[in-house]
């Protein structure tokens, strides 16, 4: 059985002492000193006088109220005059359904939409100024007979082109990126960990960081450290062979 907590024992002790003190004092509370307001009592009395069916209820209520402060120990009461006993303490949660703590939420409008609007404005402003200052490249018209050296893919594919220097195109161009995409798609189904806390997700976090860093490093090498013939160069020594 569950042990009765200290504070409940103390409270019970205090109540017992109070009851004992009250029983010592002469009870002068009569039937008139009920908790029913005067005007309601008057109304019920009037109803009783008119001899209606509602009498019984009013009668009973008065009787119950009258008996309560009588002061004498009721029949079947326990030690200290209590008519109830503390059988056990059931901790909340064991039988009650406790709901999770309420989530602190705000309205999407205006709180989120305002932020997004400002972000879009800032993005537009940045793009506008950048486009004003830096022109997009337009080289000579396409010529199949003049292969530039080096020929580079768009920057986001330079990681793949970098892989091409190490593996057969079937592996570097198809198998590895395909596996990467499949791994990304499967990630939520493979990851059985339901926690969102960073301290619980060290494995997945490090895996993803490795994955992202792998591609980032390859893209950076392909962009800035590859010169004519796609050979390794240092940008500070030979210049940058890179166009956006």
């Amino acid at each position: 059985m569950t042990e009765i907590p200290e504070h409940l024992l103390k409270r019970a002790q205090a109540a017992r002492e109070k009851a004992a003190a009250e029983s010592d004092a002469p009870a002068d509370a009569g039937a008139g000193d009920s908790r029913i307001p005067d005007h309601l009592l008057e109304r019920s009395k009037a109803a009783r006088a008119s001899g209606d069916g509602a009498v019984a209820v009013a009668d009973k209520a008065t009787a119950v109220v009258a008996s309560a402060p009588a002061g004498s120990v009721p029949v079947g009461a326990g030690p200290g005059g209590h008519t109830q006993r503390l059988l056990t303490v059931v901790k909340s949660g064991s039988i009650q359904e406790t709901k999770a703590a309420p989530v602190d939420k705000v309205h999407t409008w205006p709180h989120l939409l305002a932020v997004e609007f400002v972000a879009a404005l800032a993005c537009t402003a940045f793009l506008f100024v950048f486009s004003w200052v830096v022109n997009a490249p337009l080289l000579h018209a396409a010529d199949f007979n003049k292969t530039p050296n080096p020929s580079k893919a768009p920057w986001y594919f330079l990681g793949l082109q970098e892989l091409l220097t190490m593996f057969h195109p079937m592996i570097a161009g198809v198998t590895l990126p395909g596996m990467g995409l499949v791994a990304l798609i499967l990630a939520p189904y493979v990851d059985r960990n339901t926690s969102n806390k960073p301290e619980d997700r060290k494995w997945m976090t490090s895996m993803m960081t490795l994955f992202l860093m792998f591609w980032a490093v390859l893209v950076i090498i392909g962009s800035f450290f590859r010169g004519p013939g796609f050979n390794f160069t240092f940008p500070w020594r030979d210049g940058i062979f890179f166009e956006l």
């Binding site: 490249p137 337009l138 080289l139 000579h140 018209a141 396409a142 010529d143 199949f144 003049k146 292969t147 530039p148 020929s151 580079k152 893919a153 768009p154 594919f157 793949l160 082109q161 091409l164 195109p169 079937m170 570097a172 161009g173 198809v174 395909g178 166009e243």
Partner: peptide, 25 residues
């Protein structure tokens, strides 16, 4: 979209890219 200007950069960047994808099934 990189291809559309049809300059040397576009042509050869896309050539490299399609050469890689050329091996996909």
């Amino acid at each position: 979209g990189y291809l559309l200007p049809w300059d040397q950069l576009a042509l050869w960047a896309v050539t490299v890219g399609t050469n890689m994808m050329g091996y996909s099934p």
